[in-house]
């Protein structure tokens, strides 16, 4: 009887210790990935027209980005080229300078604005208000009529290291 009681006590203690450890090591919230951020954007924001996903080949042709430098990316544009809507979300790999990615995206905004000024001037106004930012290893460019709502999602989901 004594042996059983001792065994039960040991088991209870192990259980309590394990619980205590779990509380001590509560994992920090992981920053969201580009896919997770875009999923939230799609869920919360209504785009003016259908958005389409572009491939690593398109990312290379448009920006010169080699996707081997990225952990993950999302590149979407509006199916209708007459609308400015254009979003790039990138998580760079360790050792890749996010500022160089940001610089390329900023240059793209100027370039696209210039193209739209002569083509669809009212969309150039939207392009001009684009936001490009870096949060740790997360780089983003949002060119959209819904830029404020979309950037808010990035700010809520991605925390700088």
């Amino acid at each position: 009887m004594k042996k059983i009681t001792a065994l039960l006590l040991i088991l209870v203690m192990i259980g309590l210790t394990a619980c205590g450890k779990k509380d001590e090591k509560e994992p920090a919230a992981k920053p969201a990935t580009p896919e997770e951020v875009y999923a939230k954007m799609e869920e919360q924001v209504t785009f003016p027209e259908k958005m389409v996903r572009l491939s690593d080949e398109d990312l290379l042709n448009t920006f010169g980005f080699e996707t081997e430098n990225f952990e993950e990316f999302v590149y979407v544009i509006c199916e209708n080229i007459l609308l400015a809507e254009n979003i790039v979300l990138v998580k760079v790999k360790d050792g890749v300078d996010p500022e160089t990615v940001k610089k390329t995206l900023s240059d793209y905004v100027s370039d696209q604005t210039m193209m739209l000024e002569s083509y669809v001037p009212e969309q150039a106004v939207i392009a001009k208000k684009s936001v490009v930012g870096v949060k740790g290893d997360f780089v983003y460019m949002i060119m959209s009529s819904k830029v404020t709502e979309l950037e808010k999602i990035v700010n809520e989901m991605v925390t700088a290291k």
Binding site: L60, N61, T62, F63, G64, D111, M114, S118, Y119
Partner: peptide, 14 residues
């Protein structure tokens, strides 16, 4: 000029 350059397609980032 830059305005017309912006109306040319890009390939490999250029």
């Amino acid at each position: 000029h830059p305005g017309d350059q912006a109306c040319c397609p890009k390939y490999r980032g250029e």
